[in-house]
């Protein structure tokens, strides 16, 4: 439509301008009001899931160190939406496993752990004793995302327990891109050929649910006799406890 009238022009221009401006401002407002929070929420969920994945990668490194006897491992990862820190095995916050046979304590080890705390969501993801676990801060429940490698071998009646400790020389924490550098200077294998009843005790608390579910699962096959104390349900002819001292050089 070809417009030839002059006064049409002025009217249309201001209305058009207001309309467009309104539309633009309105959509920006809508996006900021609804879209942006959704994106942020989505992002923090993603951060947590990324971290789950990263922890499993670090767990794979740990497997290489402990089970494949590789001396040194390093993985770069990005920590976003939270903080990753190492809790030294000797610190008060470290949880503890005690393994006993019929006559007494075979091994008592403070574990230490690698822990990620999300800022926005209240999730905590932890790599402890070869297991990747997740819990909500300030709540009692916890789940195991990737299991450690404890096992009972029925034909030989062998029970194998792995205890992995995290040690550092200084306090470490990280946000942003970093590299987890670990080495395994030493390990100890304890073999008991007539252990009788094997008792495993977990003290420290935060992940007791995850460990309970794991230890009472069929692959390990223990039963809880007292809170956080587990006994084997099948006879054990040979108890093997392997203690790995992993050193974290940097994260």
């Amino acid at each position: 439509m070809r417009v030839t009238m002059d006064n049409d022009r002025a009217v249309s221009e201001s209305i058009g301008f207001i309309l467009i401006l309104g539309l633009v401002v309105g959509s920006i407002g809508l996006v900021t009001l609804y879209g942006y929070p959704v994106l942020l929420k989505e992002q923090s969920t993603t951060d947590v899931r990324n971290m789950e994945r990263a922890m499993i990668v670090v767990q794979n490194d740990l497997k290489s160190l402990c089970y494949k006897n590789v001396p040194y491992k390093e993985t770069s990862l990005q920590v976003s939406g939270g903080t990753l820190e190492v809790i030294n095995a000797s610190s008060a916050a470290a949880e503890k496993f005690r393994v006993s046979n019929a006559t007494g304590v075979v091994a008592e080890v403070k574990l230490g752990r690698l822990e990620y705390r999300s800022d926005r969501e209240n999730y905590v993801i932890t790599l402890e004793n070869g297991a990747v676990m997740k819990r909500q801060a300030d709540q009692t429940g916890s789940v195991m995302l990737a299991e450690p490698r404890w096992f009972y071998d029925p034909p030989t009646r062998t029970f194998v327990v792995y205890l992995i400790t995290f040690n550092t020389t200084e306090y470490m924490s990280k946000t942003g891109v970093g590299a987890v550098k670990m080495s395994l200077p030493q390990k100890v294998t304890l073999v008991d050929d007539d252990p009788g009843t094997v008792t495993v005790e977990y003290t420290g608390g935060d992940y007791s649910t995850a460990w309970r579910n794991y230890l009472t699962s069929p692959s390990v096959g223990m039963a809880e006799t007292d809170p956080n104390t587990y006994e084997n349900t099948t006879p054990v002819d040979r108890l093997v406890v392997k203690v790995y001292d992993v050193w974290v050089h940097d994260i």
Binding site: V31, G35, V38, L39, E42, T45, T46, N50
Partner: peptide
Amino acid sequence: AVAMFFLALIVNQSALV
């Protein structure tokens, strides 16, 4: 802008492999 927003949501969704 809107397209990018949706793309971002999708990328966030599929981050885990």
